[in-house]
Amino acid sequence: MSAHIQPVPFTKPEPPISPEKEIVESPFRDFVRAFLRHRSAVIGSVIVLSFLLIAILAPFITSYEYTARSQALLQAPSVDHWFGTDEMGRDLFTRVIYGTRISLWVGLFAISGSIIVGSLLGLIAGFYGGWRDTMISRIFDILLAFPSILLAIAIVAMLGRSLSNALLAIAIINIPTFGRLMRSRVLSVKSEDYILAARAMGMKNRRILFHHILPNCWTPIMVQGTLGFATAVIEAAALGFLGLGAQPPEPEWGTMLADARQYIQLAPWTMIFPGVAVALTVLGFNLLGDGLRDIFDPRMKQ
């Protein structure tokens, strides 16, 4: 399902390309110039930054509280309530605004978690090879073969319904994406001439790992991380929609959609705005991720 929208090129190991050369040769300013010239990267980062600002400034944007009830039940959008009100008379604009915090929070922590664990495993597998590689790769195979959303559902069922457990489940199901990516990068970087040279000069494993291999692997991870952020936001909403994520009265977008569903006849607007918020956030991260990839990986540039 929505879990796997990452563009396909990353699912197969790519031939070694050397993004580091681009960066080494062109300083930071060139990156900024390339970035600013890239339309989708700019639009994406504008969207992402706006949501970030909304999340931080939520209390200043709206004068309501997200749990505050009123007598105005299920009212259509108006001057007082820009997005209308829900079945308990709560201001939907406020709830959508505060929902930004939850979604960004989940995205950030879940993806950081998968990146850390995935990269570490991928690094070990790629660098040391041998039985470690076999074992770790099999673990990735196993995790990937699971229907991911069902695995997430089972994990949440096991740990209990809450936002933090949903976050954990999302982190777990995204581990192999990063792990495999890291492994393939490490494998390709490892066979580069200068690494072989460093090794020939008797450089220690750890030094090679941290000083030469890791710095050259993190760009694709960052690109994938941005795209993965988008995925995590959708997954969190999906779990919320099934009642497994954030619990009421938390204004999580998926949970809001689930509540709104029974008012589809009476008050369609309760369903429209949280969905638009999810789609926009995801769009922002996808655009940004696409842009970053194009910039870092000229081979993909059109």
Binding site: M1, A230, A237, M271, A279, L280, V282, N286
Partner: peptide, 22 residues
Amino acid sequence: ALIGVSMPIFWLGLMEQWFFAQ
């Protein structure tokens, strides 16, 4: 296409149901 990749499909489904069926 871009919006398509960014859409939570369950929301798309709900909106379809609301618009085309209801």
